[in-house]
Design a protein around this nucleic acid. Structure first.
Lengths: 136, 136
DNA sequence: CGGAATCCCCTAGGATACTG
DNA sequence: CAGTATCCTAGGGGATTCCG
């Protein structure tokens, strides 16, 4: 999650710090961000309907308005989310996953399944540390 | 990637900042870390063979010895990687994915595929920013 | 209502040096 | 060889305030 600055430069450029052929790292830089996966999931649950900013915020417990804004802007830039503004006063802004976003959600679903099935094991492994000497 | 400190406390505890029923977030906190996914992949490619520390380091271009160490310790704590020490002088330490680690790799493979197929679109979307006004 | 700007803290993670 | 310990900085992300 460190090389985020490389985005503006375009990571196909010559001066890359890391393997430019590792799209996985790039992807994780995006979805590894605190609220991205939750936003994608929330929008996916609503699809094909659009969701307004405030409503989205309500469905994502704990997110600050700044971070939701930042997250959505990033997703929009990446072409994963579409943004529609109704130029009323006050304005209404709607978000929805694009086709690309939906396909990402499908890929994420796999991870989610794994997490749901196995995170408990990881927790148990962590708790087991420190006891292993006794049991030896 | 921020709430990492919650690990020691055990995220089943009462004081959780976020939904304790979101294992996906926990998982991303792990694999979203800069070197974790690369380490898992590298170990998976070698499986079922063990890999020594230095060899692993060589196969992961750019990783510092500190970060590899930290990453491996974390993976070991999580039960995703097994660690075997030969108490020779100098010592030789071998790493290998556990069954749990291998199953994670399988889940990660899905993400990798998605990334390889679609990161280019994301790049294109990013580059398109700024032109969209011209095109009307 | 949606969001941009500012301030500030905290952690990931790189460089370097030391140990067994 | 395989770490561990220390120092340092860049950036994520929370709170708060201001704007159209």
């Amino acid at each position: 999650m460190t090389t985020r600055g490389a985005r503006a430069a375009g990571h196909g450029a010559r001066g890359d710090l890391f393997d430019p052929h590792c799209p996985t790292r790039q992807l994780l830089d995006r979805i590894g961000t605190k609220w991205t996966s939750m936003a994608v999931k929330t929008l996916a649950d609503a699809a094909p309907d659009e969701v307004r900013f405030a409503e989205l915020r309500r469905r994502m417990p704990g997110v600050s308005q700044k971070m939701l804004s930042v997250t959505l802007r990033s997703l929009t830039r990446d072409g994963l989310v579409s943004r529609r503004v109704e130029p009323t006063v006050p304005p209404r802004v709607f978000y929805r996953l694009t086709g690309l976003g939906l396909s990402l959600e499908a890929a994420l679903a796999g991870l989610r399944t794994w997490a749901e099935e196995h995170m408990a094991e990881i927790d148990r492994a962590n708790e087991a540390i420190g006891q292993e000497v006794d049991e030896g």
